[in-house]
Every structure is written in C-alpha cells, then in structure tokens.
Simulated scan of single mutants.
Amino acid sequence: MITFDIIIFISSIIFGIALYWLEAKNNGLYRSINKITNSKELRMPAISKKGFFVNQEFIPRLIYVNVIFILVVLVFLVLPFGPRIEYYVSGVLGTMIGIYIANFVINVKDRSENILDKVVDTGNDIIDDIKTKGQEVTDSFSKEETTEETMSTEPETPKKSGRERLKDKGLLK
C-alpha cells in the first residue's frame, strides 16, 4: 500500500507541474469564468496572466486543487474499492508541490532570459561603441596620413622671394 501511495504522490507532482504549465501558456478557462462572473468594470485586464494556479496566493490554489480532487473522488466512489483518505491527501499535497515546482522553474527561466537579453544588449552596445570609436580613430589617422601625403607628393615649385615679385610688377629696379 505504501508503494501505491508513493506512485500517487509522484504522479500528482507531475500532474501539478502539467496544470501550472498549461495554465501559464493559456488561461482561457479562467478568463471565460471571470468574464461570466464579473461585470465589465471588474473583469481582469486582457494582458493579465492570472489563472486558477498562476499568480494566485496559497489559499486560492489550495481551494482549486481540492475542488479538482473532490471531483475525482466523486468519480472514484462508483468503483468497488473506493478512495481512501491517504490517497486524497497525497494527491493534493503532491499537486501543490508540483505547482510550486513549476512556478519556480518558469520564474527562473523568465528571469534568466531577461538577464541574458540584458547581457546581450550590453555586449552589442559595447561592440558598437568599439566599432564607432575605432572608425573615428582610423579616420583621424587616415586624415593625418592624407595631409602628410598631399604635402609630400606635391612637387615643390621654387617660390619667388618678395624682391623678385616686386621686380616682376615693376615696382623695383
């Protein structure tokens, strides 16, 4: 009997993880129930991720899990062996543990993706700064080289002195 209890506990952990993961992807059932039960002013916003298990406190999660398992127990009451309280408790406890494990994993994944995005953006900014600064430095070196090249490549024509220019104009003899 202990092994069956352990099997129920482990499978309920997996069930809790699956419940949380499915609701984190799409909270359509919670949204539709919210739309039916609340007026337009009290409905949750369209961008809200809140669901039966996602973004809920401990007590509402526990209530929703108990409702699910009460429905399961009602189905099993028609079977000849009937449910036992130990199986119910291990199922509820395992599901709650699975929900919190999934919550932890998804939050860590989201935070790590945000951190990686920030690191990549910072790295790209640094690389862009290096490229622009490097381009400015190479441009300044190339300007210095071109001014030196233009000075050295121009053929030096002999320049006339001031006296010779005045003689050419006829102002001096």
Rank of each mutant, 00 (worst) to 15 (best):
L71N: 07
L71W: 00
E57I: 08
N55P: 03
L62D: 00
L42A: 11
F58L: 13
N66R: 05
N55D: 15
I70W: 00
L29R: 05
S32P: 02
N66F: 08
V65N: 00
S39N: 11
L71K: 04
P60N: 00
S32Q: 12
L79D: 15
F81H: 13
I63L: 13
F81Q: 15
L71M: 11
K50S: 06
L77Q: 09
R31Q: 10
F58M: 09
V67Q: 00
F81N: 15
K49H: 12
L79M: 14
E41W: 06
L79I: 13
R84A: 10
Y88K: 03
V73Q: 02
I63M: 05
I68A: 07
S90H: 12
N34T: 05
V54S: 05
E86Y: 06
K40L: 11
F53Q: 01
V67H: 01
V78H: 12
V89C: 09
V89R: 04
I33V: 15
N55S: 14
S48Q: 05
V67N: 00
S39M: 05
S39L: 04
E86P: 02
V73F: 11
N38K: 15
V54Y: 01
R61D: 03
K35V: 09
L74A: 06
P80W: 07
K35P: 10
Y87H: 08
N38P: 00
P83T: 03
S90N: 08
G51I: 03
P45F: 07
F53K: 00
N55F: 09
V54G: 02
I68Y: 03
K50I: 09
N34D: 15
I85V: 09
Y87S: 06
I68L: 07
V54Q: 00
K49Q: 10
E86R: 14
N66V: 04
S32C: 08
V72D: 00
R61S: 12
K49M: 13
L71E: 04
E41I: 09
R31S: 10
F69D: 02
N34G: 13
L77S: 11
K35G: 13
P60S: 01
F81V: 14
F69E: 03
Y30R: 04
I33F: 10
P60T: 00
N38M: 08
N66Q: 09
G82R: 15
F53H: 02
M44Q: 11
N66S: 15
Y64R: 07
Y64W: 10
I59N: 06
Y88W: 10
S90G: 14
G82Y: 11
K50V: 10
L79E: 14
L62T: 11
K35I: 14
L62Q: 01
V72T: 04
K40N: 13
G51W: 04
P83Y: 04
I47Q: 15
S90E: 03
F81W: 13
I47R: 11
E57N: 14
N55V: 09
Q56I: 03
E41N: 13
A46H: 13
Q56F: 02
I85C: 01
I33W: 10
